[in-house]
Simulated scan of single mutants.
Amino acid sequence: MKILHHPHRDDIHLTSVLHALSDPIRLSIIQEIAQHGEQSCSCFTAPVAKSTLSHHTRTLREAGVVFVRVQGTQHFVTIRQEDLEARFPGLLAAVLNGANTSGTGISPGNETGTTSPS
């Protein structure tokens, strides 16, 4: 079984976290986890291929934004809230609040994360 690398709290860098959260698909993954708690990778509703979703999850994990727990063939993803809050107080809440108020989430058929004018 492959061992997944999760950076130590002190090795989480702001530039990596911001890069990981800058993608609309990855941001929507974080929003889903924030709303529903730990999620299996197969439960995400991102409109991308499974391999692309794996890439996004790996990017979030390697940046230190999420923790991936392997149980059998399932991969369960949680946000590393305590670590992120310790390193960058208020950052995650600000990003999630900004994403929720600006409507930048992803919906099926809207892969770019842009919103349509009302």
Rank of each mutant, 00 (worst) to 15 (best):
I3K: 08
I3P: 03
I3E: 06
H5K: 14
H6T: 13
H6S: 13
H6V: 08
P7S: 07
P7C: 09
H8C: 06
H8V: 13
D10G: 00
D10F: 03
I12M: 03
H13V: 10
L14F: 07
L14C: 02
T15G: 02
T15V: 11
S16L: 08
L18I: 09
L18E: 08
H19L: 10
A20Q: 01
L21W: 03
L21H: 03
L21C: 06
D23R: 03
P24C: 04
R26M: 04
L27W: 01
S28A: 10
S28N: 10
Q31H: 14
I33G: 00
Q35W: 05
Q35E: 12
G37A: 01
G37R: 01
Q39A: 06
S40T: 03
C41N: 12
S42C: 03
C43S: 12
T45Q: 10
A46M: 09
A46L: 08
A49N: 01
K50W: 04
S51K: 11
T57V: 15
R58G: 02
R58M: 10
L60Q: 00
A63S: 13
G64D: 04
G64R: 02
F67V: 13
F67I: 12
Q71E: 15
Q71W: 08
Q71D: 14
Q74R: 15
H75P: 00
H75D: 05
F76H: 04
F76W: 06
T78M: 09
T78L: 10
T78W: 04
I79R: 11
R80M: 12
Q81A: 15
E82M: 15
E82W: 15
D83W: 12
A86E: 02
G90Y: 06
G90T: 08
L92Q: 01
A93I: 07
A93V: 08
A94T: 14
L96F: 06
N97H: 13
N97G: 15
N97Q: 15
A99K: 07
A99M: 12
T101P: 00
G103A: 12
T104L: 11
G105D: 06
G105S: 10
S107I: 08
S107H: 06
S107G: 07
N110K: 05
N110E: 05
E111W: 03
E111M: 05
T112R: 07
T114I: 09
T114M: 10
P117Q: 15
